[in-house]
Lab assay of single mutants.
Amino acid sequence: IQIFEKGDFSGQMYETTEDCPSIMEQFHMREIHSCKVLEGVWIFYELPNYRGRQYLLDKKEYRKPIDWGAASPAVQSFRRI
């Protein structure tokens, strides 16, 4: 998965294949504004440590949070399923 600090795949980008319990600790990001799921299925969580509201992401590109069903870019953790 590739995660971006700004919408439309702009700003700082990080790519990982590992679960992330805290985007702040692992990537020094506060929010995720866009992402590209390159393979597999992932779950975004609103809070750290896989808690809070969940969003299921299939293999595709998400230009903004509304594309994965979120009203805001408040994603604090994610993991692959």
Rank of each mutant, 00 (worst) to 15 (best):
D8F: 13
D58V: 11
P65G: 09
D8H: 14
A74S: 05
C35V: 11
I32E: 02
G69A: 10
Q54A: 08
E5K: 09
F4A: 02
Q2T: 06
P21H: 14
Q76S: 15
E46K: 02
Q12E: 06
F27Q: 11
I23K: 01
P73H: 10
A71K: 15
D19K: 04
P65Y: 15
I3T: 03
P21Q: 11
I66R: 12
G7L: 08
G11P: 11
M29G: 13
A70Q: 06
G11I: 02
S22G: 08
W68E: 06
V41T: 14
A71C: 06
E5R: 09
I81S: 07
H28P: 15
M24E: 06
M24I: 08
F44S: 02
F4D: 00
K59W: 05
E15Q: 11
C20L: 04
I1K: 01
D19N: 03
Q26S: 07
H28T: 12
I66W: 10
F78A: 04
S10W: 07
E39N: 14
E31K: 07
Y14R: 09
I3E: 00
T17A: 11
E5Q: 15
R51I: 07
K36Q: 10
H33K: 04
R53N: 03
T16M: 13
F4P: 00
G7S: 09
P73E: 03
A70K: 15
D19R: 08
Q54K: 05
L47I: 01
A70T: 07
T17V: 07
L38N: 05
R63K: 05
G11Y: 05
Y55T: 12
R30M: 13
I3L: 08
K36F: 14
E61A: 01
E18Q: 10
E31W: 14
K64T: 03
K64E: 06
L57T: 05
P21S: 11
W42H: 01
G52W: 00
Q12K: 06
F9T: 06
F78K: 01
K36C: 05
I66Y: 03
D19H: 15
E46F: 01
K60M: 14
K59L: 04
I81T: 15
R53A: 07
R51G: 13
I3F: 12
Q54F: 04
Q12G: 12
R80W: 12
V75T: 03
L38G: 11
M29K: 09
M29R: 12
K6W: 02
K36G: 03
E39G: 08
A74W: 04
V75F: 15
E39V: 13
I23T: 07
M13Y: 14
Q26R: 10
K59V: 15
Q76G: 06
E31V: 14
F44T: 03
K36S: 11
V37M: 13
K64P: 03
E5S: 07
T17S: 06
W42F: 06
Y55L: 06
V75E: 00
G52D: 01
S72W: 10
I66S: 13
P65C: 03
M24Q: 05
I1C: 14
L57P: 01
S77A: 09
S22R: 08
D67N: 14
I1V: 13
R51F: 03
V75K: 01
M24K: 15
F9E: 03
Y14P: 00
M13V: 08
Y45W: 06
I23R: 02
Q54L: 04
D8P: 09
S22P: 00
Y50N: 01
E5A: 08
Y62R: 15
Y55A: 04
F9I: 09
P48C: 04
C35Y: 03
P65Q: 12
E31P: 06
K6Y: 07
G52L: 01
A74P: 02
C20E: 04
T17E: 05
Y14S: 14
G69W: 08
R30A: 13
G7R: 13
F44Y: 05
D19I: 04
G40V: 00
R30D: 10
F9W: 08
Q2M: 05
F78R: 00
W42I: 09
D8K: 15
A70F: 08
W68M: 15
Y50L: 02
P48Y: 03
I3Q: 00
K6T: 10
I43L: 11
Y55W: 11
R30Q: 14
R80H: 01
K59E: 02
S34A: 09
S34G: 13
K64M: 15
P48F: 02
H33C: 12
F9S: 06
F27K: 08
S10P: 01
D19T: 06
G7K: 14
F27M: 11
L38Y: 05
E15F: 06
S22D: 14
K6P: 00
V75W: 05
K60P: 04
F4M: 07
P48G: 04
G69V: 06
S22H: 09
M24G: 10
S10H: 05
R30W: 14
S22L: 08
Q54T: 12
F27Y: 09
L38F: 08
Y50F: 09
I81N: 15
Y50G: 02
I3A: 04
R51V: 08
D8L: 14
G40I: 01
I32S: 05
Y55H: 15
K64V: 10
E15W: 06
R53K: 10
W42K: 01
S77G: 02
I43Y: 13
I66C: 15
G7Q: 05
S72V: 15
I81E: 11
N49H: 09
I23H: 03
K60D: 02
H33V: 09
R30F: 10
R80L: 11
T17P: 14
R51L: 08
F4Y: 05
S72T: 05
E18H: 07
D19G: 07
P48E: 06
L47W: 05
S72F: 06
N49R: 05
F9C: 13
E5W: 10
D19Y: 10
E18M: 06
G40Y: 04
A70P: 12
R30V: 04
W42R: 00
V37I: 04
I1F: 10
R53I: 03
D67K: 04
F27S: 10
I66N: 07
I23V: 10
E39M: 09
G7I: 12
S34C: 06
I32L: 11
D67V: 08
Q26T: 06
K59C: 05
K60V: 03
P21A: 07
Y14A: 13
E15S: 14
Q26I: 06
V41G: 14
Y55R: 13
R30Y: 08
R53L: 06
K6M: 13
T16E: 13
I32D: 00
V75S: 01
A71E: 12
P73F: 15
I32C: 11
E5Y: 14
L47G: 06
Y45M: 01
V75P: 15
E39Q: 07
D67L: 02
P21I: 06
Q54E: 06
C20Y: 07
Q26A: 08
S77C: 02
L56D: 15
S22N: 10
S10I: 06
I43G: 12
L56E: 15
K60A: 10
Y45E: 01
F78L: 13
M13D: 07
H33Q: 08
Q2F: 15
S10K: 10
K6S: 14
I32Q: 01
F78S: 02
R79A: 15
S77P: 01
C35M: 14
V37S: 14
P65A: 14
M13K: 07
Y55C: 12
R63T: 05
R79V: 01
Q12C: 05
L47A: 06
L38A: 12
D58W: 01
Y14E: 15
L47Q: 04
I66A: 07
R79S: 07
D8Q: 15
G40T: 02
P48Q: 09
S10Q: 11
E61P: 14
P48N: 05
R80V: 13
P48V: 05
R51K: 10
S34L: 00
K6C: 04
L56T: 07
T16D: 09
C20V: 05
E31T: 14
Q12W: 06
Q54R: 09
Y62H: 15
